[in-house]
Design a protein around this nucleic acid. Structure first.
Lengths: 334, 334
DNA sequence: TTGTATGCGTTATCAT
DNA sequence: ATGATAACGCATACAA
């Protein structure tokens, strides 16, 4: 069942059928309807492979994320897919995990599938420590546009959509200082661009208030409720005093709530806690978590808008920033 | 950069290049290496569209789910993608939402993209009430194999992978009865096949113990922490006594924990709670949730195995069942 | 407005 | 073991 069958049935040439198929206006109403009814009768479906071969595109975008089962990433993937679809694009999903080798492998896989662009979701794809090798991204960008959601890498055909993580943490910390706190702990899960920005936001707020932070007080920690709980218990038993906790992820903040519960510490009266990402987890604890909303939906939406603009030949700024909000619930009282 | 360029450079015919490309054995070692180095020199990448056109397949599987940001579905999507990839298949992701119209639309979209098979993740795709219209699935199955994860629909080219939800709830409820409970509440979110099986499991356990359950005691509820909390508060204030809660989803169980906290009810001493899906949420509450593990990973893995078997021409049973486990944490003491 | 002819880059069949 | 050539099904430049 192909364009030839339809043309024969309708008594026209294949060119005309193709025109009808593509909504070309140079077709008389009469022949158009003839063709359409022929297509219906034959239950014709265009062969997308043949079209792809000619046009050299399948209107497909590659999505890479380290782990689509992660709450935050899952949301981003969802929003990106929805938005892509609204532009008529398909989403080819790749969960790469965190190995450099695999990231690289999946990148070239997507390239070999001739996707029209690639969206890298999450801050885990680029390594921003000096001298690091991000060539797999730069190389790919020479062929198709690359969008980084929550990552930063300079490059001609590389576009970054990110949240102002630094300011978000800085503002939350500053508010807590204003509320009278001096004894902070900051827990974070990643040294990615985004992760370091959050940490810097924390440190900047401390510096500005003249609060010294020794290294017990900021801790790189696996993204896990129990690891966070464990670490806090550890320094608590070492008699490090603290009455304010900021985290780079809600799971760590949940761990903090559980730590407080275990030790009979009253939240928020004796200890205030702020999470990050404003995920479902924030609604699960008692008291419920105050959390920084990093605006996944807007981030995702902007990422797709940007990509579409680029694919349409528009010229776009390489950096797009979204502003985070602190959602106050019950683990804070400022 | 195509097969002709390579053939010219290597001084052979395109047929030979194609043979090398596909690992055909009828090529001498000498010419093979000539061709390979030509490919390397030209940095040749095969055009997948052309191959797709000839072979009429792109080794791609469509994944449909109502909402990939849902914790449970996100996990399933993740495992399915990983497993598909291990077989060399790509995953085209479609988040359909819950409208019949959209499900139908996305189904034909995937068909028009000529995917090799479709995996429907979640119980929301087939309506099992008598006289319901599931023709969009049946129709699709006449073209390509359809796999239902957690759904049931009879059909020639339709394969169902599911969890024995009935027994899981039945067993948990029976254990609670044995532990001395008589006053149960069951909260559920869906009347899908899976949802009804869970409900029946609950009712069967009650029937068997001669416990009468009036309609206050099983309640269809939006999948939301607060709705669950609200409903429990409502019947509590109506003086419906209960000391055991079973739910079809962890979020509802979290709501139950919050309800208990609000009313000063001790869990598990005065109230035992069991969730479903054993998701991250189960680790967030205090006390932590006992929850039925519905084995998403195994379900997902089996789904892909089944599909691969079918695509390979094997003959497979249309139904594949996985056994759930109750993971006991702190909201139960039996 | 419509038709003809060609190219897109493979794989596969048939010779040799 | 290798080569020539025909599909595969569409889009489109050019002709009419």
């Amino acid at each position: 069942m192909n364009i030839y069958d339809v043309s024969k049935k309708a008594g026209v040439s294949i060119a005309t059928v193709s025109r009808v198929l593509n909504g070309n206006h140079n077709v008389s109403e009469k022949t158009r309807s003839k063709v359409i009814s022929a297509m219906k009768e034959l239950d014709y479906t265009p062969n997308i492979f043949a079209r792809g071969l000619g046009l050299n595109t399948m209107k497909t975008i590659g999505i890479m994320c380290t782990d689509s089962s992660d709450t935050y990433l899952a949301n981003a993937v969802y929003y990106v897919e929805q938005k892509l679809r609204s532009f008529g694009y398909d989403a080819l999903l790749c969960c790469t995990g965190n190995d450099y080798i695999n990231k690289k492998k999946y990148m070239s896989l997507l390239l070999s599938k001739r996707v029209d662009g690639i969206i890298l979701i999450g801050s885990q794809f680029v390594n921003n420590s000096p001298g690091s090798d991000n060539s797999y991204i730069v190389d790919a960008s020479s062929e198709i546009p690359i969008i980084l959601v929550n990552g930063y890498l300079a490059g001609d055909n590389i576009y970054c959509v990110m949240c102002n993580d630094h300011d978000a943490v800085y503002n939350a910390a500053s508010d807590m200082i204003k509320a009278g706190h001096r004894d902070f702990v900051y827990l974070y899960t990643s040294t990615s661009f985004s992760g370091m920005n959050k940490l810097r936001g924390f440190k900047d707020a401390m510096d500005e208030a003249g609060i010294h932070i020794d290294k017990d007080r900021f801790h790189l920690c696996t993204k896990s409720i129990s690891k966070s709980n464990d670490y806090l218990s550890f320094i608590y038993e070492k008699n490090v005093p603290f009455d304010a906790i900021l985290t780079s992820d809600d799971s760590l903040a949940v761990g903090a709530v559980k730590f407080a519960y275990k030790h009979g510490i009253k939240v928020p009266d004796e200890l205030e806690i702020v999470g990050y990402n404003n995920s479902v987890l924030a609604n699960c604890t008692e008291p419920e978590l105050s959390s920084i909303d990093s605006k996944v939906e807007q981030l995702s939406s902007n990422a797709v808008d940007l990509l579409m603009e680029v694919l349409g030949g528009g010229s776009v700024s390489n950096i797009n920033t979204v502003t985070a909000d602190l959602i106050k619930r019950q683990t804070t009282k400022f």
